[in-house]
Design a protein around this nucleic acid. Structure first.
Length: 424
RNA sequence: GGAGAAGUACCCAAGUGGCUCAAGGGGCUCCCCUGCUAAGGGAGUAGUUCGGUAACACGGAGCGCGGGUUCAAAUCCCGCCUUCUCCGCCA
């Protein structure tokens, strides 16, 4: 959520920043609501102050045997004005809050305007592997090596679902272990959160109200705690752990990671060329999150990018790191770097990790704050990064590590978990 | 799913409609006395949030959450959430 004070003081600046993502903001409407809100608060509170004052007098008047009926009549009138006023205020505040919740985050100053086409590659690791034989794509490899059963996956759950079998499941699990082990070594706290989250989590993470339809709802109730959904990423859970809390600066940063499957509808996004596990309704991901003070969030961002890169490099995969243009960053994020790994059969790079800094955007939504050494309270910064998503790593591995005879060499870091050097 | 009990500030806790716009205690902070791994006396202590102000002042909200009744609600009524105890169900 964008600070209303910033919109008040620098409307043009906010509009310009949002324009970088191609978003046209209705800031005048918001400012009108804001002004209306403050005006009505002033009126209502004057009435309430009067009510409190008179109320305090009533017991005394009664004691002295004075006639309180005229006072009652007047108070009833004030009471009616107050409730009318409060009702109006609630309507205004609801609308104001909704409008603010729908505004995307302000991109950082150094994030360039525009969409995908303006993304900038800032690092390339390794080289495109060259093959002196006709390569197979990951679907062919996974089928022939019996790593993935696509057809039976569809039988169980429909299009966009697959079944890891045997060595496929082992490699998947090995990847997760490799990631988990690394994060623990780096001092991050391992979290296994619930997969069904309440509505507030979606709001706090910035996915709701805009992307409500992109998640799987598990309760049909329209409101209340029963309105739960399957998390689309562990970020949704992790950034809400401290929702509504005031952290002590000395206990920060919070460095967390979680493993969860991610559940997504991906409606309309399935493309013919993205066969196999490139995009599915359920995929595994290890997610990193940091909760920091504003001063340390930039350094934390670099740390997360470094960690994500190190994981892919550890696997020996050719990838590129891109700094996304404003329009390609997700709505909640001020900056995002993507790690894209080379998929030989497609001849393109595919995202396997996305590291982002939300600044205080999520913290303002879910009221996550911290108290510094002087007792001053401020909003935290939240950062997240995949470390990593396996559904695209596994295809990249089998494709980049494939051999002439159809076997796949197991990356060295996974061998202790897989128990073999080559999958035949 | 059913029955019962509970939810008050950092912690414990009193409080069945009005000098309680939350008593008392613990803890914490400061002061006094004492003088050193004691003990005693006194004062302060509602965090937060919203409006307001240059900053103060000042005012509103706030007793799990949301409504309602009333001139007035921690207190009465309704709905919900959470915790505990018991029962039922349990792939």
């Amino acid at each position: 959520m964008i600070d209303i004070n910033l919109i008040r003081s620098d409307k043009a600046g906010v509009a310009a920043a949002l324009a970088k993502r191609g978003y046209t903001a209705e800031l005048d409407g918001i400012l009108d609501l804001d002004a209306a809100r403050r005006e009505i608060i002033g009126k209502t509170e004057a009435l309430k102050a009067e009510k409190n004052k008179v109320s305090a007098d009533i017991p005394r008047m009664k004691k002295n045997g004075e006639d309180v009926q005229p006072v009652f009549a007047k108070m009833r009138e004030i009471g009616e004005q107050i409730s009318a006023s409060d009702e109006k205020l609630k309507t205004i505040e609801d609308e104001l809050r909704h409008n603010l919740l729908c505004l995307p985050n302000l991109p950082d100053a150094d994030v360039v305007a525009g969409g995908k086409e303006n993304n900038a590659v800032i690092k390339i690791y390794g080289e495109k592997p060259s093959f002196d034989f006709p390569i197979k794509n990951h679907v062919e490899l996974c089928e022939s090596l019996k790593l993935i059963d696509y057809e039976r996956g569809v039988k169980l759950a429909g299009n966009g679902s697959w079944l890891y079998t045997g060595r496929g499941a082992v490699i998947e699990w090995a990847l997760l272990n490799y990631f988990i082990k690394t994060h623990i070594t780096d001092g991050y706290t391992f979290v296994l959160p619930p997969h069904m989250l309440n509505y507030e989590c979606g709001l706090g993470a910035g996915q709701f109200p805009k992307f409500e339809d992109d998640v799987y709802r598990v309760d049909t109730a329209e409101d209340g705690a029963a309105r739960r959904f399957m998390l689309p990423t562990a970020e949704t859970a992790l950034v809400n752990i401290y929702r509504g809390e005031i952290l002590e600066e000395k206990d920060m940063p919070k460095k967390l990671f979680a493993y969860t499957p991610c559940y997504r509808k991906e409606a309309g996004s399935y493309r013919a060329e993205e066969r196999g596990m490139i995009r599915g309704h359920q995929f595994d991901k290890v997610e990193m999150v940091q909760v920091t003070t504003p001063d340390s969030s930039k350094a934390a961002f670099e740390e997360l990018v470094g960690k994500a890169c190190a994981l892919v490099e550890g696997l020996g995969l050719h990838y590129r790191l891109s700094k996304l243009a404003a329009g390609d960053c997700s709505a909640s994020m001020a900056r995002t770097y993507d790690i894209e790994v080379w998929i030989p059969s497609m001849g393109i790079y595919k995202e396997v990790s996305s590291v982002s800094n939300a600044n205080d955007y999520q913290a303002r939504r879910n009221m996550t704050r911290y108290r510094d050494g002087n007792g001053k309270i401020g909003y935290v910064h939240t950062l997240n990064g995949s470390g990593l998503a396996t559904s695209r790593i596994l295809p990249a591995i089998v494709e980049q590590y494939q051999n002439r005879n159809g076997s796949v060499t197991v990356p060295e870091v996974l061998r202790e978990f897989v128990g073999t050097d080559v999958i035949k």
